[in-house]
Write a protein that binds this DNA or RNA. Structure first.
Lengths: 220, 220
DNA sequence: AATGGTATAATTGTATACAAAAATACATAA
DNA sequence: TTATGTATTTTTGTATACAATTATACCATT
């Protein structure tokens, strides 16, 4: 049975605003005032403010005397984040290959199987499963970071990965990239399963590099 | 004349709590309740809560039903953070060497001159300037990140550097390390001044590596 | 002694009231 | 027309009241 910790309004608002900013629903320069958010979201200022403080801490908004200005993630940010990922994620994957437990492997496999399911489904009936695929992609990477057993790697890589969502979403719309991304994930998984740090590292770096190329050639 | 944006109570509380947690005044596992913080700091819950939400976002506290549990930074975290820094900070330094302006160089020089002043002072009269030296060290690195012109590098490196404060403080207590650290900074500065990315990168990596060794051999 | 239940206390979550600061609009004078 | 001063509005900052949840203490029962 799964523990069900009730999620506070403040947390929900945070998640929603973070998501909406990172996918570009609120555009760079747009001003969010507490009052407007209260009205549009139907809650009091307290949870709104707490969410805004967290978003500010993540540097995706910035407080001014006229309200919170949306910063968001630029193409240049994206480029730099990939550069960082290409150097750090490989190290994390190597750690994970050393440390991951059978339970951890099982969880990752489950995610991969689902991802495989949706990719094959798109191949078969040409349906759009890109949102599911993107979420499973996120989950795969989150687990990769978690099972490194290192808070520092997790805290460094997860925010970067999260901030790329808009661009990853666009990349996965191209089904050929979605298919290739999955097969790269499967390769990384096999390296983790074999507890081969060097291989996991190299495949992960390659994966990041290809993801970058596929995203940067898009216009977005 | 310096612009003086009045700092809110919430911000002050955040800075203070963050500092106190990171230097270990509040120890791992300790529970901070809003009411106690209100009483000891003499303010209402609102600014306390906003500070706590930000600390939670940084993963240095964790909310539970009994209050906010202090997480802090362990020796293992420190090790991993150095590993990450050694791979990322060099890239940032190379960027900075490419991009830094004369004004930027002047600011960094000013910090270095002050650091030199305090180090020489300690040499001369054996006074304890370690706190000043540590702060100037922080400022040097902050400027290095800023002048990379990259939000991604700044957002990745600054939190890591900040979280090391307790350990860096201890390292700088050893005056021989303080002196060496300064001379390494001066070397990096010259590479920036010469706009030599490769050299800046290599010296920065070396600097991080030596800082790590000097910290890891301490007991703390 | 261990278990379970109930009342109490402690703690956070949310809404709201009020204060302060800043931005805006507007009228007036040069 | 431009500048300036003032009133108004907008917006955030802080404190507090109240609700809901969770933890604790204590007693009763076995």
């Amino acid at each position: 049975m799964k523990e069900h910790k009730s999620i506070s309004i403040a947390d929900q608002i945070f998640e929603q605003l973070e998501h909406d900013i990172l996918i570009g629903k609120y555009q760079r320069g747009e001003i969010l005032t507490e009052l407007k958010l209260c009205q549009s979201l139907g809650v009091s200022r307290t949870p709104i403010r707490e969410a805004l403080r967290r978003l500010e801490q993540e540097h995706i908004i910035e407080e001014t005397s006229r309200g919170a200005v949306v910063i968001g993630i630029s193409r240049e940010d994206l480029f730099d984040m990939y550069e960082i990922r290409m150097h750090v994620e490989g190290l994390a994957a190597a750690r994970t290959a050393e440390k991951i437990s059978d339970e951890g492997l099982a969880k990752m496999k489950e995610v991969l199987d689902l991802q495989r399911y949706y990719v094959d489904k798109t191949d078969a009936d040409n349906s759009d499963n890109s949102d599911n695929i993107k979420n499973l992609d996120s989950e795969f990477h989150r687990l990769l970071y978690i099972f490194s057993g290192s808070k520092a790697y997790y805290d460094t890589l997860l925010p970067i990965h999260k901030k790329m969502i808009k661009y990853r979403k666009a990349a996965v719309k191209s089904h050929s990239r979605a298919r290739q991304s999955l097969s790269e994930h499967e390769g990384i998984y096999r390296a983790l399963e074999a507890h081969d740090p060097e291989l996991a590292k190299n495949l992960t770096i390659e994966h990041a590099s290809r993801a970058r190329d596929s995203i940067l050639e898009k216009e977005i």
